[in-house]
Nucleic acid binder design. Structure first.
Length: 288
DNA sequence: AGTGTGTCCTGTGTGC
DNA sequence: TGCACACAGGACACAC
């Protein structure tokens, strides 16, 4: 379930495995995910030293010592599984065209110079990877045009109000627009709107003043709480299976159609509607 | 320019 | 049990 908090915990899980290590082997097991892999993908990564693992919105940015960046987007179903050096693979035996033991939908397998193994698995293949040349991050087609990080000091009520001014689209759709604010997805948008008491159908342009303040605060609170949940519920962000960054979470609005609203003093019932082709869950009683 | 819709892909859950 | 269908956390390429 990769939204920003999940991507963040994946980064925190990958970093200790990768930073300071060399990528000794890369097994790219198909020519494309959502998009073709960039030319020279395997050669560029093989032998490279990892210096940092960063995140921008929902993009994982693996920094290499030669200045290049390995960009990974998890799409809908992308996930990383790690196996520390010296242990057996967690993958099931299957068709093995490459050197690595691979389970179904294992598309990229990396091994570090200390024998750790990092597997990218993506059932739906909506994820993708790219390589960014040194100094070219601003020119990357995926990263250029992204709005501010929601947890940063750049994401203020003032900025938000001005970004929404004149937008004749529902606030739900505006929040999905990564140019307005980068990293929010369907779940946390539903949660933030529920928490701030704003209807997902409200015209974006009408979210300003106190409403904008409430929504900005709710976005930050919801994301921070989810990141905390990821960190506290998983030791070092790694499950027993080796899978990174995915954690149990209970939602107040998302996926609760027909259930009682959990807001104190509210006797509403959560409804599901479709906006921009996506399910929206909200309480019609207290979200206005 | 801004906004809405269809599409990529596979797996899972539900209802008949 | 088998089958058809709806739906799934994202982002892009279009049409209007």
């Amino acid at each position: 379930m990769p939204e920003l908090p999940e991507v963040e915990t994946v980064c925190r899980g990958l970093a200790p495995m990768l930073v300071g290590r060399r990528l000794s082997r890369i097994d790219q097991r198909r020519p494309d995910l959502r998009f073709p892999f960039p030319p020279g993908f395997v050669d560029r990564l093989t032998g490279a030293m990892v210096t940092a693992v960063d995140r921008r919105a929902k993009y994982i940015l693996i920094r290499l010592s030669d200045g290049w960046t390995w960009l990974v987007h998890l799409g809908m179903s992308g996930r990383f599984t790690i196996t520390p050096g010296g242990r057996a693979s967690s993958g099931q035996a299957g068709h093995n065209s490459g050197w690595a033991l691979a389970a179904p939908h294992d598309h990229v397998i990396a091994e570090t110079d200390d024998g750790a193994r990092i597997v990218y698995n993506d059932v739906r293949r909506f994820g993708f990877m790219d390589l960014i040349p040194p100094g070219d991050e601003a020119g990357n087609k995926h990263l250029s045009g992204l709005g501010p990080e929601p947890l940063s000091d750049d994401f203020t009520a003032e900025y938000f109000s001005s970004a929404l001014a004149g937008k004749r689209t529902p606030i739900k759709a505006a929040l999905l627009d990564q140019r307005v604010v980068a990293g929010l997805g369907n779940i946390y948008i539903c949660e933030a709107l529920w928490r701030s008491g704003i209807s997902p159908r409200r015209l974006a342009a009408s979210v300003n003043g106190k409403r904008a303040e409430r929504l900005v605060g709710a976005v930050k609170d919801v994301l921070a709480a989810a990141i905390d949940a990821g960190g506290s519920s998983l030791r070092d962000y790694v499950q027993a299976t080796g899978e990174l960054g995915y954690f149990q979470h209970s939602w107040d609005a998302y996926d609760r159609e027909g259930s009682a609203c959990r807001r104190d003093g509210c006797d509403g019932v959560i409804r599901r509607i479709v906006q921009s082709g996506r399910s929206t869950y909200f309480c019609p009683k207290h979200q206005r």
